[in-house]
Nucleic acid binder design. Structure first.
Length: 859
RNA sequence: GCCGAAGUGGCGGAAUUGGUAGACGCGCUAGGUUCAGGACUUAGUGGGUGUAGGCCUGUGCGGGUUCGAGUCCCGCCUUCGGCACCA
């Protein structure tokens, strides 16, 4: 046989699998289904190491499950709408559609070159009308159910994106796509999806997803942000309104001495209009809103506010409380207004001190007094209620419920739960997205596009505008239409949907991707869904994974789906990381711009930075295509799986890739050099008796099957699975190195070991294993073969190793017949020569024998 | 501040239920092969110490439980991730 030439054999087997159609699946009720899905890629241009790792992990599981007899659905598609396409199109003077479809074509060949076992017949791209028409249909159904609505409100705006962002897309007060680009609040008309209708279920089901990492569930729980408290009503003085406030501290109600509004609160304008305070309040509101979200919400920002000239009444003390507008009150949280209790809340305390507002202690420590004038900070510990009427003397935490009930009895409030989660803003003022199927008629108002007029096509014959502004509102051929109700001229909605809408249901569409009579063929969806195993990056812990859960529940309630949750099991793989190179002249450098520790542009010494996620901005990227060209995809796959367990970050290592390459070459040589011998015998079947060395190899083979099966099945720990196979390989190799002329029986045992290795390695490195499998005389394809099973008999041994400790320290290891019981083992251990050195002349206090594995002698 | 995860050789990482710490791979050292390099191959490789059999020590730090602790308990430290003027 020739030497290992991955380029040749990999292409050969890829077309073999393709021609045989091994990975095309249909609903087969006689088999157990297994839906394995990796997060679909954005067609950014070419695949990166993150994709390779994600899809290598998924492919092992898919191929393994197939070998285990499951009917495996393993689809692939493209998350194809989104801004990068527009930006690239403007830059390269092309069209987002062309850019996107070209990228898809290239990336598809790359994925095929990796040998992933996808059912390519199910491929979908979300930018195709055949896909987004159903998204528009579901939107209309949501609109009719009141789950999609439009409102004018303050939204997050990114200047670079030229669009609105959802709350989930704001990270540290900045745009998620543009770190450092501060998000501004802007008052706009926007479409929202009512995810808050499902808040409780989304939260409750966090406890019913045992297959999800605790980390992701915690992040989702945090994001939903449940807090138990009460709504309290404050009647206003000389103004016909009652202010409602949410608080978790209703126990402090007797100490509430003033009220604060968020600057965005619509009531602020009403309260001050035409009063002497109007001007000052307006100035303050404007000034505060100009400050970006991050600075405004930083805890070092000084608490500031301005008096509105209005008062309300404390519902339990009837005391007059001045109403302020304050920068620290968040409009998005609670009701946008807070009751201020300066004695027991630090923010309120600072605010009261600054503006000379009254303080009243209502909680005191158990064994001390608190005097308002002497307080230097708010008292926030547990304590005893004082100045609280009928509640005096109670422990404040115990009084929470009682005070809520009291407020309820006087109709001044009620117990409630508040959530941080807000409705999902999906309007985007961008071009490359799915049009929102709505028409505005001067006479009839907001009118949904009739379902039989779907899809509302995104026009492709447009020129993009510099800076990213959408051309849709400027394109009469798009926005000019007739009202479906009255037939008069009307205007189309020109906003498109957030691309996260497309990715919230694509996994359902894979069940029937070509279905033309609705979003889903219900029988097929019922067969395949939910996804049994979902695999992707942790960065989607709240965004995509929360939206998808919400959509699943909406689609279920519309009757499309029967499952409550989209993904039964979730694996969040770690990032691929690499150190960075930096030149004082040229900034970050690509690895190829560095030679012998120097910048190839200026020759100055480079600075090596710590290992961070591979990204274009830090230029610490490795192009997987170059690796494939050099080593083949099997080596790349193996490296990704061997270097670390999937949930952990993967540290890039050139030497590590070399190691995988060397192993595959050794495997190739082992089989090609012994091909005739292997070819001539059948694998050992366990019937004839074996020499101890051969019995050892036979046992090791079956141990390896057990270990690898458990590692893949139970833990997805492919790194240890590969280690185990390497151990078996080393054993076979060592045998061949020490025995000059192996006998026929020897070869049968070797053949079994080699066959087993190829079967176990197949999901990891499918091409080389197919080639070697065929080369050693097998006629069937590994891709459709059954996963090997181990026999208990093979694991049985004649002797076992027992560790002997004296006072917990290992002093000897003895080989005993397996038939020995604990007493016989103990006896032999006590008479062991090495052990006698430690026990001679000492009193043996105690001897512990553990599971025939270990003896500990206490002297 | 709250919540979560993690800390093991020169490096990536093993040790699944408390029972041989460092599997497997990389790197390194020495030898073989080679004109040389690479590739391949043999042996070694936590630290300390001894001519040697060996001994001592060792899983972030300090305690504890146990015959026995990387693993369990208590108290810290560090790193990473999430949430956070959340009322």
């Amino acid at each position: 046989m020739r030497k290992y030439d991955p380029q040749k054999i990999e292409l050969k087997w890829q077309s073999f699998w393709d021609e045989k159609g091994y990975f095309r699946v249909s609903e087969d009720k006689t088999k157990q289904k297994y839906y394995l899905l990796e997060m679909f890629p954005y067609p950014s241009g070419k695949i990166h190491m993150g994709h390779v790792r994600n899809y290598a992990i998924g492919d092992v599981v898919a191929r393994y499950k197939k070998m285990r007899g499951f009917n495996v659905l393993h689809p692939m598609g493209w998350d194809a709408f989104g801004m990068p396409a527009e930006n690239a199109a403007i830059e390269n003077k092309t069209h987002p559609a062309k850019w996107t479809y070209d990228n898809i074509d290239y990336m598809r060949t790359q994925l095929k070159r990796m040998g992933f076992s996808y059912d390519w017949d199910r491929e979908l791209a979300t930018c195709r009308p055949e896909y987004y028409r159903w998204e528009q249909l579901v939107f209309l159904k949501m609109f009719k159910k009141g789950l999609a609505y439009k409102k004018k409100t303050y939204v997050n705006w990114c200047d670079l994106c030229q669009t609105v962002l959802a709350n989930e897309q704001v990270v540290d007060g900045c745009c998620w796509r543009h770190p450092g680009q501060e998000v501004k609040l802007r008052e706009m008309d926007s479409w929202f999806l009512k995810i808050t209708d499902y808040t409780k279920e989304l939260l409750e089901y966090c406890d019913r997803l045992p297959g999800w990492p605790e980390k992701v569930l915690t992040m989702q729980r945090n994001w939903i942000g449940e807090s138990h408290g009460a709504i309290i009503r404050f009647p206003m003085v000389d103004f016909d309104h009652t202010i409602e406030v949410f608080t978790t501290r209703q126990d402090t109600i007797f100490g509430a001495t003033f009220m604060c509004f968020a600057p965005e609160h619509p009531l602020v304008k009403e309260l001050t209009e035409g009063t002497p305070y109007e001007e000052e309040v307006r100035e303050f509101v404007e000034k505060t809103l100009k400050v970006d979200a991050f600075m405004r919400t930083a805890d070092f920002t000084v608490k500031e506010g301005v008096f509105t000239g209005r008062y309300c009444l404390n519902p339990v003390t009837s005391e007059k409380m001045p109403i302020y507008v304050a920068n620290f009150v968040l409009y998005e949280y609670g009701t946008g207004a807070v009751m201020a209790v300066p004695t027991h809340d630090q923010r309120d305390f600072e605010f009261a001190k600054k503006y000379g507002l009254p303080l009243r202690v209502v909680i005191k420590p158990k064994d001390a007094e608190l005097i308002e004038e002497e307080m230097l900070e708010a008292y926030i510990e547990e304590g005893i209620l004082v100045n609280s009427g009928p509640f005096d003397g109670m422990v404040n935490t115990a009084a929470l419920d009682r005070i809520a009930e009291y407020l309820e009895s006087i109709e001044m409030g009620y117990k409630t739960i508040n959530y941080r989660l807000k409705d999902w803003g999906i309007s985007r003022q961008r071009y490359w997205g799915a049009p929102i199927p709505i028409i505005y008629c001067p006479a009839c108002g907001v009118v949904p596009v009739p379902e039989d007029q779907l899809p509302v096509l995104l026009p492709l014959d447009l020129d993009l505008k510099e800076g990213g502004k959408s051309p849709l509102p400027f394109e009469p051929s798009f926005y000019e239409t007739a009202c479906p109700l009255c037939g008069e001229p009307a205007r189309r909605e020109a906003d498109t949907m957030d691309t996260f809408v497309e990715s919230s249901w694509y996994f359902d569409r894979y069940a029937s991707p070509r279905y033309e009579h609705g979003p889903f063929d219900e029988d097929k969806v019922a067969y395949w869904l939910p996804v049994d195993q979902y695999i992707g990056g942790i960065e989607h812990a709240i965004l995509h994974l929360l939206y998808s859960r919400f959509y699943t529940k909406v689609l279920r309630d519309m009757g499309y789906l029967t499952s409550d949750e989209p993904f039964t099991n979730l694996l969040t793989q770690g990032m691929v990381c690499k150190e960075t190179f930096r030149c004082s002249e040229h900034g970050y450098l690509y690895p190829e711009e560095v030679q012998e520790g120097r910048c190839i542009h200026c020759g100055s010494e480079i600075e090596i930075g710590s290992s961070v996620k591979m990204s274009k901005s830090t230029k610490n990227v490795i192009d997987p295509q170059k690796l494939i060209d050099r080593y083949g995809s099997d080596t790349v796959r193996m490296f990704c799986l061997f270097a670390s367990p999937p949930e952990r970050d993967l540290e890039w290592s050139e030497e590590g890739v070399e190691g995988s390459w060397r192993f595959l070459n050794r495997l190739w040589r082992l089989i090609s050099e012994n091909r005739e011998h292997l070819f001539a015998v059948r694998p050992y079947d366990g019937s004839s008796s074996l020499t101890p060395v051969l019995k050892d190899m036979y046992g090791k083979t079956h141990e390896t099957i057990k270990k690898v099966t458990e590692d893949i099945e139970e833990r997805f720990h492919f790194n240890t699975a590969i280690s185990a196979i390497m151990e078996l390989f080393n054993k076979v190799n060592q045998f061949l190195n020490t025995v000059d002329e192996p006998s026929e029986v020897d070869w049968t045992v070797i053949r079994e070991a080699v066959d087993t290795m190829l079967m176990l390695l197949h999901p990891i490195v499918p091409h080389i294993t197919e080639e070697l499998w065929a080369a050693s005389g097998n006629t069937n394809s590994l891709a459709v073969l059954s996963w090997p099973t181990y026999t208990e008999k093979a694991l049985e041994k004649e002797t076992r190793l027992v560790v002997v400790q004296v006072n917990g320290k290992v002093r000897s290891r003895i080989e005993v017949p397996v038939a020995y019981d604990d007493g016989e083992i103990q006896d032999q251990a006590l008479h062991d020569e090495r052990i006698l050195n430690f026990t001679n002349g000492k009193e043996i206090k105690r001897v512990i024998v553990v599971q025939k594995k270990l003896v500990n002698i206490v002297v």
